[in-house]
């Protein structure tokens, strides 16, 4: 059918029994197969098969949620890479930063990517929330999804904050010292919570290990769980809600 070898290889792969067992739909050349792309894929199944055309307009969502999730994917990927070189102990944590900088190939690049990605994720989540507010997209039936969004914002901030300590440099140490001392001022529950969070009275090696576990295990799992609920509910509530529409015209001239 084709002169070049690549389409033939592609065809051979697509017709193989193994590929057919993994991907159950044919080429997305008909609307039936396009719907199967969504139906038959666990990850794309978060989306309905069809969406309203107007929701694809840029000003409908400004794609802020998509930007935030994209930053999250970048953070997961680079975060796993950084974990291969990181020891959550004093003073090895700081030495690992130096090693990333001077020894590891592309170490600086992936650390930078992780740092700027974190800033983008926080910024994206904040702007997304503002957009949803001004579009009044928290109205019924989306009330609970707004609350899930607030939880996601808090988890994002906590993730960023726990990550802030891990390089164990002056910036990290004093940023976290000041922040956890704020918690101490909360009546009754403040001091014990701070003690448990830090694993001691001061920011020490215990605190570094605890923040590491929170940053790499507990908070990401919480984030992905709530994110699953968030996106699933967007679909259940009829897709993304854009700018409020003018009330249905009482009378339309033909």
């Amino acid at each position: 059918m084709n002169g070049t070898p690549f389409p033939r290889i592609g065809l051979w792969v697509r017709e193989s029994a193994l590929y057919r067992s993994i991907v159950r739909h044919g080429a997305a050349d008909t609307n039936r197969n396009r719907s199967l792309v969504i139906f038959e894929n666990l990850f794309l199944h978060m989306h309905p098969v069809k969406v309203r055309e107007k929701t694809l307009k840029f000003t409908h969502t400004y794609w802020l949620g998509a930007v935030t999730i994209s930053a999250m994917f970048v953070l997961i990927a680079t975060g796993i890479l950084l974990m291969f070189y990181y020891h959550p102990s004093v003073p090895q944590a700081y030495r690992d930063m130096k090693e990333l900088k001077f020894v590891v190939d592309n170490g600086v690049f992936y650390r930078n990517l992780h740092r700027w990605g974190a800033h983008l994720m926080v910024l994206g989540a904040l702007l997304h929330m503002v957009r949803v507010f001004y579009h009044r997209a928290y109205r019924p039936p989306r009330q609970f999804n707004w609350v899930v969004g607030v939880v996601l914002l808090l988890v994002t901030l906590l993730l960023s904050y726990t990550g802030y300590l891990l390089p164990w440099d002056q910036l990290a140490f004093w940023g976290v010292s000041v922040g956890t001392n704020m918690a101490k001022e909360a009546p009754i529950l403040g001091p014990p919570i701070r003690f448990l969070l830090l694993g001691g009275n001061i920011v020490s090696e215990n605190a570094l290990l605890r923040f590491y576990v929170l940053h790499c295990v507990l908070l990401p799992v919480a984030l992905l769980g709530f994110l699953g609920v968030h996106i699933w509910r967007v679909r259940k509530d009829g897709g993304v809600q854009g700018p409020p529409e003018p009330p249905a015209d009482p009378e339309v001239e033909p």
Binding site: F195, L196, G199, G200, N201, I202, S204, E205, N206
Partner: peptide
């Protein structure tokens, strides 16, 4: 778990 999380020896 709460008890477990409370450090018993502090290296301060």
């Amino acid at each position: 778990v709460l008890d477990f999380m409370e450090p018993k020896v502090l290296f301060e």
